[in-house]
């Protein structure tokens, strides 16, 4: 973005920190996962059952919020087109660290049934660091919850550091993104 009067132009900061009660805080992070309700594909249909009465994700501390600013988890719920990818990148970058991404469904793993589509991104982790993949087409809410359990486990163990990877290798990710997204009209980094 050349014209920078509307946007902050800086590159993201690399963050390294160590906490005194690392384990405790990781536990807290794992127990309180706020999911931004951003539906990219058919998987977004599976989210409402997950958080409502039948499967009740809230009992694990997983609840939805309406804005990326407050969210911890971004669910990429299904196939990603190039057009959607731009928005996903923006939403992801607007979330505040630490943040995690859950890839939902076969499409995010390798394109799934759209593996040969001219418009479906096959390898999402090239563009966004995925912490947990949930396979299936589509995975049932139970599977998603299992995925969340995996994510919690990773967070508690301190291994869910996709966001750190993204920041550390920001140039590489950006290069990958720019490879498939022509005419990059969004800011250098979506603050």
């Amino acid at each position: 973005m050349k014209d920078n009067k509307y946007f902050l132009d800086d590159k993201p900061d690399k963050i390294s920190y160590s906490e005194v009660w690392q384990k405790f805080f990781n536990w807290a992070r794992a127990k309180s996962l706020w999911v931004v309700a951003y539906g990219t594909g058919c998987g977004s249909i599976e989210i409402p059952p997950m958080v409502t009465s039948r499967f009740d994700a809230e009992r694990f501390g997983v609840s939805t919020v309406g804005t990326p600013r407050q969210a911890d988890v971004l669910i990429i719920s299904g196939y990603l087109a190039v057009k959607t990818l731009k928005r996903v990148i923006r939403v992801y970058e607007q979330m505040q660290s630490p943040k995690y991404v859950v890839g939902l469904g076969a499409c995010t793993v390798n394109g799934g049934m759209y593996y040969d589509s001219y418009n479906t991104v096959n390898l999402v982790e090239l563009y966004i660091p995925i912490d947990v993949y949930v396979a299936g087409c589509m995975p049932r809410p139970e599977a998603i919850l299992a995925g969340f359990a995996q994510l919690m486990k990773k967070i508690k163990e301190g291994r869910a550091d996709g966001w750190k990877h993204y920041l550390d290798n920001f140039e590489q990710y950006r290069k990958n993104q720019e490879k498939i997204i022509k005419n990059w009209k969004i800011p250098n980094y979506n603050w």
Binding site: K5, L8, K86, R90
Partner: peptide, 22 residues
């Protein structure tokens, strides 16, 4: 406090869209 950055005026969480004008 966390590490705070002062952002631009159109850097808002607007459903993934980039607003085109104020």
């Amino acid at each position: 406090k966390a590490k705070i950055r002062k952002v631009g005026q159109l850097d808002i969480g607007y459903a993934g869209e980039v607003p085109d004008s104020p």
